[in-house]
Design a protein around this nucleic acid. Structure first.
Ligand SMILES: [Mn+2]
Ligand SMILES: [Mn+2]
Ligand SMILES: [Mn+2]
Ligand SMILES: [Mn+2]
Lengths: 147, 147
DNA sequence: CATGAAGTGTAGCCACGGCTACATTTTCAT
DNA sequence: ATGAAAATGTAGCCGTGGCTACACTTCATG
């Protein structure tokens, strides 16, 4: 009888593996900014304003944490904010937010399409999205289009 | 004629959204340990030993960085290591590594199955895997089984 | 079996992203 | 108009995960 030998462990080539881990760290380093940009855009679109306290509440962090992240957004040229006057996105910030929002939706849709329950899809997409490359996003879109 | 109104932005309920972001942060906080555990297990399985320098080279970080992460693995009861003698996994570490390796494989397979090119699948899986919940993993397995 | 190379460990630096505590400003109701 | 509540900002703490520089072991090779 045939028995499938289970899990033949094959290590990737060292440089390839190092490159992958490095790119993963790189992607992760942008994750927070992406989520802030997406959320700020959503708040501006639905309520006309994005206030630090609202941002903080929706992210589940203290307002002090949110304000420091907003400072980083400003430093990176993604947002503008004057004291006590709310947060706005620059052109670059808007562009990023639009891209991030579109990707977020595709990831959720893909998960749903392969049978992931709704809440799990929403939950897991929030973390997975930041590691979805353009190539993968394109494949997701093709898959969703051709069902 | 019918024109699809594009992107009606609907914000999630505030508590739900905060819960999701919180869980995402939680998942992220385990990502590094998972990758170390998986890699150490692979090195032990293929070469019989897992030395800090090899681990560092494969992760693309300095050996000092690897050694500090190994210290954290020890602190969390996942690994053991005596000075100059290499790294080993505890029972808990082995268990984690096995789970992580299995999940990694399923994620890559799922990506391939929906049309993601090989290298993009390998690359993106490295980051996405840490945000794949049990429910999503089960859905992935079902999808792969029933093609 | 000595010695130099490789590996390992330690110290100290930095940025990020959490937090609490407190100060200040704005907003809102009376 | 004013005083309290809410929002905002600032300061300072911590753990993580990067790094370089330097010290110390171990190991391999001549
Ligand atoms: Mn996200
Ligand atoms: Mn998102
Ligand atoms: Mn990984
Ligand atoms: Mn992995």
């Amino acid at each position: 009888m045939l028995s499938a030998d289970p899990d033949p462990i094959v290590l990737p080539e060292e440089p390839a593996q190092a490159r992958r881990f490095g790119k993963t760290r790189d992607a992760q380093s942008h994750a927070l900014l992406e989520d802030y940009a997406e959320l700020i855009a959503d708040l501006l679109a639905t309520g006309g304003e994005a206030r630090p306290t609202d941002i903080a509440r929706r992210l589940g962090v203290s307002h002090a944490t949110a304000i420091k992240a907003i400072a980083r957004l400003k430093r990176e040229g993604l947002a503008t904010a004057r004291p006590y006057r709310g947060v706005f996105l620059t052109e670059a910030g808007e562009t990023l937010a639009a891209r991030v929002r579109a990707r977020h939706r595709v990831v959720v849709d893909l998960l749903r399409a392969v049978g992931v329950p709704a809440e799990a899809a929403e939950q897991d997409a929030e973390g997975m999205e930041h590691h979805v490359s353009d190539a993968t996003l394109a494949a997701f879109s093709r898959f969703l289009a051709g069902r």
